[in-house]
Amino acid sequence: MAEHRVPHLVVFTGAGISAESGIQTFRASDGLWADHAIEDVATPDAWRRDPERVLRFYDMRRDQVRRANPNAAHEALAALEKQGFRVSIITQNIDDLHERAGSRHVLHLHGEIVKARSSVDPRMHYPLPCGGIALGDLCDKGSQLRPDVVWFGESVPHFGAACEIAGQADLLLVVGTSLAVMPAASLLEHAPLDAPCVLVDPEANALVPPGVTAISQPAGKGVPALVRHWQSEGRLWLPEAVLEE
């Protein structure tokens, strides 16, 4: 099938899908975030005050991501794309689990932890296939490298592109997010009015906004179930068998 002829599934993923692979969310009461206040490691002020501390923290987060593996939800979305469906993923997550599962069209709203970027030119990115970032590691303009992540208090540079993608959706699938982090949560407002929207999350019934279908299941169960129906029918739809589980 030619890509422009098939329905477009736009997937918006949050921390919940990565948590099922063992990656801690910043709301978690244990793990890396338990001993680090956000304002000490994830803001521009923290970077100015103590860049070495910030680099150490993100080195630990990067190690955690490298140890994690894609789960059934990541793999199901990649398999759907491989079958010929048009799948675009917009993610709040800074890990590379979607890419490692095989998804090719992934937009990271909040950056990618497996990359570094220049402190003076956000267009300059450097892959980090191994190791981390140390003080004295410089970009080609002679500026200190920093994690390629969007910190609290910074703008979201790819939000406009994400809105354009959401506006092309035939079906919007939201996975593992509270829909509370702005501006990303407003992506739903950019989807076409006639595009169905589904939220897969263990707390979906409590989180779901009006007009959105709730599937109160973990990502690793709810997403593969939907994908199996779409694969068997060769189209995007909302099967009652899944919605009633």
Rank of each mutant, 00 (worst) to 15 (best):
residue 130 C to R: 15
residue 244 E to K: 15
residue 69 N to P: 01
residue 52 E to H: 09
residue 135 L to C: 15
residue 67 R to V: 09
residue 89 I to Q: 10
residue 59 D to Y: 10
residue 223 V to R: 05
residue 107 L to M: 03
residue 112 E to Q: 14
residue 164 E to V: 13
residue 154 E to G: 08
residue 81 E to I: 06
residue 228 R to Q: 15
residue 64 Q to W: 04
residue 204 A to C: 06
residue 17 I to P: 06
residue 133 I to V: 04
residue 56 R to P: 01
residue 98 H to L: 03
residue 13 T to P: 10
residue 229 H to S: 15
residue 75 E to K: 10
residue 102 G to R: 05
residue 214 A to W: 01
residue 83 Q to A: 15
residue 141 K to E: 10
residue 218 P to G: 11
residue 43 T to E: 04
residue 27 R to E: 08
residue 110 H to L: 01
residue 159 F to G: 07
residue 2 A to E: 10
residue 190 H to G: 10
residue 149 V to H: 04
residue 183 P to V: 14
residue 139 C to H: 03
residue 213 T to Y: 12
residue 172 L to P: 06
residue 81 E to S: 09
residue 178 S to F: 10
residue 226 L to R: 09
residue 172 L to C: 01
residue 35 D to R: 15
residue 166 A to G: 08
residue 119 S to A: 08
residue 5 R to H: 11
residue 174 V to N: 02
residue 58 Y to V: 01
residue 3 E to P: 13
residue 51 P to D: 06
residue 230 W to L: 02
residue 87 V to T: 02
residue 126 Y to R: 06
residue 226 L to A: 08
residue 53 R to N: 00
residue 169 A to E: 09
residue 12 F to E: 03
residue 205 N to Y: 12
residue 119 S to E: 02
residue 222 G to N: 10
residue 96 D to W: 12
residue 144 Q to N: 06
residue 35 D to C: 13
residue 186 S to Q: 06
residue 21 S to F: 04
residue 39 E to Y: 02
residue 236 L to Q: 09
residue 119 S to F: 02
residue 132 G to R: 04
residue 51 P to H: 01
residue 113 I to P: 01
